[in-house]
């Protein structure tokens, strides 16, 4: 590791500290944005005075704002996300049971996205400007614009209701993950198709590809061993960035397919006005996103020596 990389890492980490502080502040302030009295909103009008006082003290709402934020940070540093108003359980336990399901879903979607997107992109690039390319590009551009809450129900209608191949929703069988993962994976594959195509086309005009061809290598070797290697680098970045959006996309997809991940926990907590849980879910997803982005950025710079350390 050169000094340049160390400087980059230090800069990156210091900007990360401010961003994380901002994220913490914003999620902390969420509860204070509730119009009126948050305790009344959460417990409803019929709650007894004792309950209200209890919750107000539990949440620390009777203290000055700065002190509340301090307590919030101190508790967080010990892994204490507070307690659910609804189930009285520590939120960290709820997150622990739900988070793996979301990660599982996100990872499978990522695999589907790569498995579909990269070959399609290579195909489109090799057939550049032929009708095959135009069809693939057109479909992928338009598909990536469609939201999960459209794609999900459409897939559900076709594969679960009409064809009856897959379960409609829930988590009862191993096949349950397929439809939600396809919903998230299709969107990603569309983006990857376009990126792979562009990136490969750029490389294919390079001198060293011409050299490889001139040496008499088979087209397969030229594409797979020489071109694709260089073309894959920008794709790594896209995959990393999309991994973050996948985490957010799970909120809607998990709700559609009743997949018990953190996204559904978020939506359920909103319906029950269990705001400490809402707050915690938002924080967890945002932090995951920030961390995935950081790792992607670092990996990319490690993988490609040409990238300047700005």
């Amino acid at each position: 590791m050169g000094w340049q990389f160390r400087v980059f890492l230090i800069k990156k980490l210091s900007s990360l500290v401010t961003v994380i502080f901002g994220v913490l502040l914003l999620t902390f302030l969420l509860i204070h944005l509730i119009p009126g009295d948050p305790v009344e909103v959460m417990l409803g009008e019929s709650a007894s005075t004792a309950d209200r006082v209890q919750l107000r003290t539990d949440l620390g709402l009777d203290q000055p704002l700065v002190q509340q934020f301090g307590t919030y940070l101190a508790k967080l540093s010990q892994g204490d996300l507070g307690k659910s108003i609804h189930t009285k359980m520590p939120i960290i336990e709820m997150v622990k049971t739900r988070y793996p399901a979301t990660v599982k879903l996100a990872l499978l979607s990522l695999l589907i996205g790569i498995a579909l997107g990269v070959p399609m992109g290579i195909y489109a690039a090799l057939k550049a400007n032929h009708w095959q390319d135009i069809v693939v590009t057109l479909v992928s551009v338009r598909l990536s614009a469609m939201p999960a809450f459209w794609l999900g129900p459409m897939l559900m209608l076709i594969f679960a209701v009409w064809l009856g191949w897959l379960p409609v929703s829930g988590m009862d069988s191993n096949a349950s993950i397929i439809l939600p993962a396809l919903t998230l994976g299709f969107g990603l594959s569309a983006i990857l198709t376009r990126m792979t195509r562009t990136s490969l086309l750029e490389v294919l005009n390079d001198d060293y590809i011409r050299t490889a061809r001139a040496k008499g290598l088979t087209e397969q070797t030229v594409i797979l061993r020489h071109a694709l290697r260089a073309a894959l680098l920008p794709i790594i970045t896209i995959v990393g960035l999309q991994m973050g959006s996948l985490l957010a996309g799970t909120v809607i997809t998990e709700t559609i397919f009743s997949w018990d991940g953190i996204g559904r926990l978020l939506v359920e907590s909103i319906e029950k006005r269990d705001y400490p849980v809402t707050q915690a879910c938002v924080l967890i997803v945002a932090l995951s996103y920030v961390l995935v982005n950081l790792v992607t950025d670092v990996l990319y710079r490690l993988a490609d020596p040409r990238v300047k350390f700005a």
């Binding site: 969420l30 909103v41 959006s245 957010a248 909120v251 705001y275």
Partner: peptide, 24 residues
């Protein structure tokens, strides 16, 4: 730009969901 960085740290529609949730 630091303020925008914080907003961009929330992926996609997550922050809008959070705000809509607390505002009602």
């Amino acid at each position: 730009m630091q303020v925008t960085d914080v907003f961009l740290a929330f992926p996609g529609i997550l922050l809008a969901i959070a705000f809509a949730a607390v505002l009602g």
